[in-house]
Design a protein around this nucleic acid. Structure first.
Lengths: 144, 144
DNA sequence: CAATTATTTGCAATCATTACATTTTTGTTT
DNA sequence: AAACAAAAATGTAATGATTGCAAATAATTG
């Protein structure tokens, strides 16, 4: 069933259903909320499928980004991270531990939309707005 | 006089005043608002000073970031860009032309501060908040 | 199941950035 | 102003994430 969901998702996007794409999507789902680097995705997949090619995983990730199945996050270190959450949301960057967490709040989004409806930027059309909330988690218990 | 300003700035931060640091700071000032990559800074400086070392420029930029003389911006491409504007402000990312522009608005900042004063994030202390405004400039006249 | 077309492979190559051992400068002290 | 200690600059090599590419393989469509 989980597999079928992925298969259907790929088909809906007009993408060929390949084992590699399924593996990557599974990894993204398994790492939900973790904002993994390509590196971590590769490791997870290789545990069961040691021969999958690095280039393929980058390709697949790229394809998924293009088709809005995942998002790509830029980080301080210049290493890209991926996010299975494609709904518009914001990010909490904890610099002490290099952690990224999601922040979702509709009121905030409404507020921002209202603000930018009023304050248009000359000759610029906005596609999306997202906040970086920078700081530090105070303890090791941040996950629950 | 311009030189003296830079010299003083460096001294205030307790940094030794070296020709390389002055060149880098001059380049940052010359490229104000442009959010250059290290690469562009290197080119500009090498026009007059062809022997300055790449490693040095990265070092200097890094030192400046650590001392809050400049800021480092992450980009989609994973290439870092630098910003001489150290006041808290937001960024407009124009994807069509890989341009970054500043966006400053006190009302917006007040609004955000008020919002996060009300909606605290558990176990997280916020250091700064900044928006990425993503979209595209509609023409080539965006500058002025 | 054959044809067509997209995808995967497996390196090699790129390119921004960093590391490092050595040399040179800086700021400070006599 | 010469000397000293500490910090910075050099230059080249190394790193490491990401991309390119030609050949091999696999997925869809009829």
């Amino acid at each position: 069933m989980k597999n079928n969901n992925i298969t259907d998702t790929l088909k809906e996007k007009g993408l060929k259903v390949t084992p590699q794409r399924i593996r990557v999507m599974e990894a993204i789902i398994a790492l939900d909320g973790k904002h993994p680097m390509a590196d971590q995705i590769i490791h997870i997949i290789r545990r069961n499928d040691p021969n999958i090619s690095v280039g393929t995983i980058y390709n697949v990730l790229d394809t998924f980004v293009k088709h809005n199945l995942i998002k790509k996050l830029k980080t301080e270190k210049g290493i890209m991270r991926y996010d299975g959450n494609t709904k518009n949301h914001h990010h909490i960057y904890s610099h002490s531990d290099d952690e990224i967490a999601d922040f979702t709040n509709e009121d905030l989004d409404d507020m921002l939309n209202a603000f930018f409806a009023k304050h248009r930027i000359k000759d610029f059309s906005i596609e999306s707005i997202n906040l970086n909330i920078n700081g530090n988690f105070n303890n090791n218990l941040k996950k629950q």
